[in-house]
Simulated assay, not measured.
Amino acid sequence: MRRTSPRAPLRVSAAPTLMAVVAPTLPLAGCASHGAPSYALFGAYFPLWLVSAIAGIVGAIVAHRVFVATGWAAIVPYQLAVCSAIGLVVAVIAWLAGTGPFA
């Protein structure tokens, strides 16, 4: 906001106002009208993120059981972090298998 002379009207730029209106809508650019990807399991529709989360939890549990069965549980430090990371990798692979380049 600048004034060129004391009597000149106050000029307000439209760019900040436009950005205040447009910026909140930018995260919605990826949304589509057809809804979230979902799969029919046991007669009900489950969203893909829920299926991926369940796959990740199962992957973390399986990784922990493998560590215990092989004796790596005594060797591997920070097991919670390691098993959680393995579960996250499994969840991302499940997500990509449903929507990404693997689909």
Results as ranks from 00 to 15, higher is better:
Y78D: 14
A20T: 03
H64F: 10
P24K: 10
A32Y: 10
S13H: 10
V21R: 09
L28F: 14
V51W: 08
I86F: 07
R65C: 10
F42D: 12
A36G: 09
I86P: 01
T70K: 00
H64M: 11
L96I: 08
L48W: 13
I54L: 14
L88M: 11
L96G: 03
P16T: 08
L80W: 12
Y45W: 11
I75H: 05
V22P: 04
L28M: 11
A91D: 12
A55I: 03
W49Y: 10
V82N: 02
P77G: 04
C83K: 03
S38P: 03
L80G: 14
M1N: 03
I86V: 15
Y45D: 12
P6G: 14
I61P: 00
W72F: 13
V12R: 13
P16C: 14
V90K: 03
S13E: 12
R65W: 14
M19R: 13
T25R: 11
S38I: 02
W95C: 01
W49H: 01
A40M: 15
L48A: 12
A73Y: 04
G100R: 15
M19S: 13
V12D: 06
Y39D: 03
L41G: 08
S52V: 09
A40C: 13
C83W: 07
A53H: 12
F42K: 06
S84E: 07
G30H: 01
L41F: 15
G43D: 13
V92W: 13
F42R: 09
L50M: 13
V22H: 00
W95K: 00
A14H: 00
G30Q: 04
T4R: 03
L10H: 06
A81Q: 04
L28K: 06
A20N: 01
V90Y: 08
V90N: 08
V82Q: 04
V21S: 05
M19T: 12
V92E: 14
V12H: 07
R7V: 12
A97E: 05
W49M: 11
P47H: 11
F67Y: 13
P24L: 09
G43S: 07
T70M: 03
G98Q: 12
G56T: 13
G87N: 01
F67D: 04
I61Q: 10
L18K: 09
A94N: 02
R65G: 13
Q79V: 08
F46N: 10
R65F: 08
P77M: 01
A53S: 14
T70E: 05
P24M: 05
V12W: 09
L41D: 05
T99M: 02
P27E: 10
A29F: 05
W95M: 04
H34C: 01
Y39T: 09
A103W: 06
T4G: 05
V76C: 07
P27R: 06
L18H: 06
F46T: 13
C83D: 14
A91Q: 11
G56M: 14
T25F: 14
Q79G: 11
A36E: 10
F46Q: 07
